[in-house]
């Protein structure tokens, strides 16, 4: 029964792993609910501010902000990449990076250089190892990030845009569709792409206080920050739900393995007993 002992230890170790994965599944499920409600709570701000930006694009303002002007020459592109800090969340980060690399290489063949800003440990190590130029880093955000934490990293990229070091700024994160589906998403932040609406075609403009430049500057910065924050919050919800699914399938796989191993163990045990009996019978017959 030497093989039997080995199988037994294997079964116990798989069962221990299963305990961990099922605990992680439950933790991820409860964290996902919180992350989802946080995502929903931040949505009104995002929706409202994009509505205002929509209004603004129809206002006939004498001052035109650099964030809203199309830049002719595109030499360098900035990307804010949002990933998780921890692993064990299925193919979430890998999928994002893979689709991103495809797009990056298509930019690079056009001779456009890339600057990167990473949020999350996984993106930082991944893009560092590939030798990309990382302009700013933010890690250890935790499960409930605040806007304060993001301001520095966003400012680095906005400053680069102001100085014309980059001519376009995009953001990459996992969009939370539902618990089962998260899709990698690359969206352009700057210059702003505004959707056309037909409603407000008459000639009008805001009264700006203190003046157009200051008010627009504040508003557009808030808009970018809101979009990045929304991206971060959505990525956390995606991470938790992806982890929950991954851990659920790991737990299921572990029970399958335990079942198979127990079958093998029982067969081995029976074979050993049968052999023993036949030996005894054989021995008795010889006497």
């Amino acid at each position: 029964m030497a093989a039997g002992k080995e199988i037994r230890t294997q079964i116990t170790s798989i069962k221990n792993t299963q305990k961990i994965t099922s605990a992680m599944e439950m933790v991820a499920a409860s964290k996902m609910k919180k992350a989802q409600s946080r995502m929903q709570a931040s949505r009104p701000y995002c929706e409202k501010i994009s509505k205002v930006i929509g209004h603004l694009s129809h206002a006939h303002c004498e001052f035109s902000h650099p964030y809203m002007k199309e830049v002719g020459h595109l030499k360098r592109l900035g990307i804010i990449i949002i990933s998780s800090d921890r692993g064990l969340c299925g193919g979430l980060n890998t999928n994002l990076f893979r689709s991103l690399l495809k797009q990056i290489s298509s930019y690079q063949t056009q001779g456009i250089e890339i600057d990167i800003c990473t949020i999350g440990k996984k993106a930082t190590t991944f893009f560092k190892n590939l030798g990309f130029n990382i302009k700013s880093v933010l890690t250890n955000l935790g499960d409930s990030p605040h806007l304060d934490d993001l301001l520095g990293t966003i400012k680095v990229m906005l400053d680069a845009y102001d100085k014309d070091e980059i001519q376009q700024l995009s953001i990459a994160y996992n969009k939370f569709e539902n618990t089962m589906v998260q899709t990698p998403n690359l969206t352009q932040l700057l210059p702003m792409v505004v959707t056309e609406t037909k409603e407000m075609d008459h000639h009008w403009d805001y009264i700006y206080e203190p003046d157009a430049q200051v008010a627009l500057n504040v508003l557009l910065k808030r808009y970018i920050e809101a979009l990045v924050y929304q991206g971060v919050v959505e990525n956390i919800a995606s991470e938790q739900s992806s982890r929950m699914i991954a851990m659920k399938s790991a737990t299921d796989n572990a029970s399958d393995m335990v079942k198979d191993l127990e079958l093998i163990y029982n067969k081995a045990r029976q074979a050993a007993i049968t052999q023993e009996i036949s030996e005894i019978v054989g021995g008795a017959a010889a006497v």
Partner: peptide, 27 residues
């Protein structure tokens, strides 16, 4: 649109510097 973060130019500046520094350290 209410701000949640405390905003001041020099505070934002120091945060940006921190983020840059982290990037340099990583590199």
């Amino acid at each position: 649109f209410s701000d949640t973060a405390i905003r001041a130019n020099d505070l934002d500046e120091s945060k940006a510097l921190e983020a840059k520094q982290r990037a340099e350290e990583t590199m």
